[in-house]
Simulated scan of single mutants.
Amino acid sequence: MTATLARPATHTRVLVDTAVADDVAALRELYRAVYGDCYPLRLGTCPVAMADAMADPTVQWRVARDLATGEVVGSALLRMDMPLRIGKVEGIAVHPDHGGAGIAGSLLEALMEPAFGAEGPLESVYATARCVSPAPQRLLLRHGFHALGVLPGAVTLREVETLALLVRYRDGIPAHRRAPGTVPREVAPLLEAARGHGVDFDGLQVATELVAARARTDTDLEVSHDAGLVLDRYARATSGAARTLPLHRPNTLLMTADGRFEAYAVIDAVAGSGLLLDGCSSPEDPEEALGGVLRAMADRGASYIEAVLPLHDRNRIEQHLAHGFTPTALYPAMRREDGVWHDYLLLCHTSARVDADALDVDERFSPYVRQHSHVRTPVGPDPSDTVK
Rank of each mutant, 00 (worst) to 15 (best):
G198C: 04
G198S: 06
D200F: 11
D200G: 12
D200R: 14
F201G: 04
G203A: 05
L204S: 07
L204W: 13
L204E: 09
Q205L: 13
A207R: 14
T208N: 00
T208V: 11
L210T: 15
L210H: 15
A212V: 07
A213H: 14
R214T: 12
A215Y: 12
R216K: 10
R216I: 09
T219Q: 10
T219G: 02
D220R: 13
L221C: 04
L221N: 04
E222M: 12
E222H: 12
E222W: 12
S224M: 00
H225A: 12
A227F: 14
L229R: 15
V230R: 08
V230Q: 09
D232T: 15
Y234Q: 03
Y234D: 01
R236S: 12
A237S: 13
A237L: 08
T238P: 03
T238N: 10
G240D: 04
G240N: 07
G240V: 09
A241P: 00
A241E: 14
A241H: 13
R243G: 09
R243F: 08
L245T: 14
L245H: 12
P246H: 02
L247I: 08
H248R: 15
H248Y: 14
P250F: 00
N251T: 11
T252N: 03
T252Q: 04
T252E: 05
L253T: 01
L254E: 04
T256H: 09
D258F: 06
E262Y: 03
A263D: 04
Y264D: 00
A265G: 06
A265D: 07
I267K: 08
I267D: 07
I267G: 06
D268V: 01
A269D: 14
A269R: 10
V270Q: 10
V270T: 12
G272V: 04
G272D: 06
S273M: 12
G274D: 02
G274I: 00
G274H: 02
G274M: 02
L275W: 06
L276R: 07
L277Q: 04
D278T: 07
D278I: 05
G279F: 05
C280Q: 14
C280R: 13
C280T: 13
C280V: 13
S282P: 05
E284I: 07
E284M: 09
E284Q: 14
D285G: 10
P286G: 12
P286C: 14
E287I: 12
E287C: 11
E287G: 09
E288F: 10
E288T: 10
A289V: 06
A289R: 02
A289M: 09
A289G: 05
L290Y: 04
L290V: 01
G291P: 00
G292E: 00
G292A: 01
V293K: 06
V293R: 06
V293G: 05
L294N: 03
L294W: 02
R295I: 03
A296L: 01
A296C: 05
A296S: 08
A296Y: 00
M297T: 00
M297Q: 01
M297W: 00
M297I: 01
R300M: 09
R300I: 08
A302R: 02
A302S: 09
A302Q: 02
A302P: 03
S303W: 14
